[in-house]
Design a protein around this nucleic acid. Structure first.
Lengths: 132, 132
DNA sequence: CCAATATATTCCTTGACACGTATATTCCTT
DNA sequence: AAGGAATATACGTGTCAAGGAATATATTGG
């Protein structure tokens, strides 16, 4: 289990992360809100912590868990290469993308009307090609 | 297998999607570039298509696959709720986030030390628009 | 129709992992 | 120190999906 996406693939883990967005929570609080057996919460939290999604501090017998940003950034970085397929007309987003992926500076500009079809490779042959 | 994250959890599928960012590709091209047995490519493409990540058109005996944006947007929407945990100091990005997640007015931060500090959001919203 | 190319599907095996139950550990309170 | 509360770990089980090999289904040209 390595990639951030594999960690987040689990629905219960996404639920836990969703809870932690609002505020840090103890295991018991998560257990109650998600109506999930405590060992399962602990196990998922273990996975999340090993993967760097959360960190914990001790508060008496409780452990308070909170979000850590790095793996989310990692996912965001991967996702960013696909943003060109939908949002293409927002300056702020554009600049963001340019920062994440400097290569796209010379890509052709997309027109400002709404959704668009196929942004890449207008070249396409219809003839069957059997070569070599 | 339903959630977009579960689809993308598979490394080979991420590799395929990564290939399709540049241009649409046939099964054979993917097979060669990723050095992956053809049935495996077809099976992963099937999963990706069923989940709406790609679509295909027929070109003679080949099928050309290309990216579809919707599931990526979905993931982006989920991810957006965690953006407040890292980026808060770039105007352009800020506005982007405010658009995606209008609720991110200043909730207070967690505890002092830890990772990098986070100059929390003195920003006002610009455009208000709900998606998803 | 036949052969060739390109892609899809089926069957099978295996391993990973999520879940449940039980138990261990840690820390507080009295 | 004992008991209890909060959390963590260990073990056994079942499921599900990825991977491999073989085969089936197009599609085209001759």
């Amino acid at each position: 289990m390595q990639s951030a996406f594999e960690i987040v693939a689990e629905p219960n883990r996404r639920a836990i992360l969703g809870l932690l967005v609002g505020a840090e929570q103890s295991v018991g609080e998560i257990e109650r809100q998600l109506r999930m057996p405590q060992p399962m919460v602990s196990k998922h939290l273990r996975v999340l912590r090993d993967a760097g999604f959360v960190e914990s501090t001790v508060d008496a017998q409780r452990r308070l868990y909170r979000i850590k940003p790095e793996p989310f950034q990692e996912m965001d970085a991967w996702l960013s290469q696909f943003r060109r397929f939908w949002s293409a007309h927002v300056d702020a987003l554009e600049r963001h993308l340019d920062r994440m992926d400097p290569d796209r500076l010379n890509k052709d500009r997309m027109d400002p009307d709404g959704m668009k079809k196929d942004p890449s490779t207008p070249i396409k042959k219809k003839t069957a090609r059997r070569s070599k």
